[in-house]
Write a protein that binds this DNA or RNA. Structure first.
Lengths: 311, 311
DNA sequence: GTTGAGCATAATCTCGCCTTATGTGTTGAA
DNA sequence: TTCAACACATAAGGCGAGATTATGCTCAAC
């Protein structure tokens, strides 16, 4: 459909769209700043070109036909689209605020511990972080950047890869000491396994993790069942059992020695973390700076000396 | 935004859109059937009006700027929208096929038992029924009508109410006889309660139904747990316990005496059944006929003599 | 250095679109 | 019934947006 499409005369279409919206040639003419006759002619032109009427001429009013209604709604959408785009590229705001959306876990364990580094580099830029687990819509929530986990295909924005991830069991050093050496997955599942509620289908829980090694989660398992991933990690920090650690989320805690890995078994996730920006909006300079900082920081090795969130 | 929007010259915009898409003024000119100079002038006009370049002029090629890219993508979408709409209203097909989407339960218990009536009235129209539980997209699946359960607000189409619904417990006559009289909800929950898996948030299960009477579903309940609603109803028909009956779905079976109500407790649903048609497409005569048949039949009382699906 | 591909610029023309003026049909008040 | 008023249609004519033709400019390739 892209190439060689047949478009009706667009000036005529604007006249038609206004007339349909206002249900009046005269009002449409006033809105467009032309005479009523001009609108009448333009619409006749369209109608003769299509070969059917767009309006039913009633006594002192007009009424769009079914076909006309369809065309009017499409035209209105189209012109709104153009108009919004023009407004977007025309406005020259020195935007100093950047709004970022991320999940609770990502925010807490990755973004917030690192964010001060960005603010130090760019003191003039104000960051607003929207922490929300269900995927927010970029347009309607006025987001500049959303950090999402998935396959990189989203309809509302352009995604750039931050990093893949992998998942492995972790626990506190104390717990590891008392539990003793864990060699097999069978030994592993005899420990209390800390899990959390998931409604995100891309998220992996214990049963999916074990399934990667063709193992089933035993019917009867002990271990906490938390509402959020953050709580699961804190439970592990408190020595209450073994949780699933997502590498980039727990890396700081591993380096600081607050968590340890209990086995070498690990699962690489099929999905990955992406930074998503709107297709519709022009990224401000501040947004662009944040995006490149995000990409750089995602590439950089985890920092041991990093101060981690409230512990 | 609707009124008095400021649009750039649209002919210039078509030139720009083509140039951006083809990355060449010359090719754009060829596509539009004008000279290269014309395209060049139009784009200059746009640029001077905006006050910034839309293309970076490189040596033997051009490259859209960031702002240009945004405008180009919006323009392309807009023109595609118009072009599609024009194609839709221009085509004059005597469509004789109507494609209807509905859930498994609605299809099985309501639509299919009644459909022959429509075919008898309109032998020339071929019906294609897409039975699918997750909500299909109207545009991409080329649906003419979708029957949906919800609040009537969907972004992709215009909904007209078919009927409200209510939910009450039902079982087979044999089961009712052996179970004896059921007066209270407490007696009710002591029976095996047949349920089915739900992922639809608008769907109500036993716990939601009981909650309407400020009652909790006991932790320990007996009763089958089916994958689909249809299976739950068949389980009830087989006398395996008490299921939740949706009035319009089980009405035929009630009238035929294959199912009976066990209590007068009933819950009116907040949502309702709607027939949804695309905003983008012009309903064919056949579609319109089917839609009015649907509305009439939904209004009509249930028919006892109706032959019901394979039993 | 010469060539040539692709965009810019200038001068000119023309037809698409607007305006003015008037016609037609319907309605509602006198 | 009549007539004024309102809303869209139609006709004639003018003007300017946008097309054309012709030529210039620039830079990479040979």
């Amino acid at each position: 459909m892209g190439i060689r499409r047949k478009l009706p005369p667009l000036t005529a279409l604007t006249a038609f769209e206004a007339a349909a919206r206002l249900s009046s040639f005269t009002k449409a003419a006033a809105e467009l700043g032309v005479t009523q006759a001009a609108v009448s002619r333009q619409i006749q032109l369209l109608e003769s070109q299509f070969g059917f009427p767009l309006f039913a001429r009633l006594h002192r009013k007009i009424e769009v036909t079914d076909r006309g209604r369809l065309l009017a709604s499409a035209s209105q959408e189209a012109f709104d689209l153009i108009s919004a785009s023009v407004a977007e590229i025309t406005k020259e705001s020195q935007e100093t605020e950047v709004t970022i959306a991320a999940t609770v876990a990502f925010s807490h364990f990755w973004l917030l511990p690192r964010i001060s580094d960005f603010s130090r580099q760019h003191p003039g830029i104000n960051l607003r972080i929207v922490t929300q687990d269900n995927m927010p819509n970029i347009e309607s929530n006025k987001l500049d950047i959303a950090v999402r986990f998935g396959n990189g295909m989203w309809p509302d924005g352009q995604a750039t890869l931050l990093f893949d991830d992998e998942i492995f069991p972790i626990c506190s050093p104390q717990y590891a000491q008392t539990a003793g050496k864990i060699e097999t997955l069978q030994e592993l599942v005899n420990n209390p396994l800390i899990s959390n509620m998931v409604d995100d289908p891309t998220w992996s829980g214990w049963s999916e993790w074990l399934a990667a090694f063709s193992m089933e989660l035993p019917k009867k398992t002990s271990g906490l069942r938390c509402s959020f991933y953050t709580e699961a990690i804190y439970a592990a920090l408190n020595g209450q059992g073994i949780a699933l650690g997502w590498r980039h989320l727990v890396e700081d805690l591993l380096i600081q020695g607050q968590l340890v890995r209990v086995t070498d078994f690990t699962v690489k996730t099929r999905n990955a973390y992406f930074a998503v920006v709107s297709k519709r909006r022009l990224p401000s300079e501040a947004t662009r700076l944040f995006q490149s900082w995000l990409a750089e920081t995602a590439d950089a090795p985890a920092m041991a000396n990093q101060v981690t969130a409230v512990l």
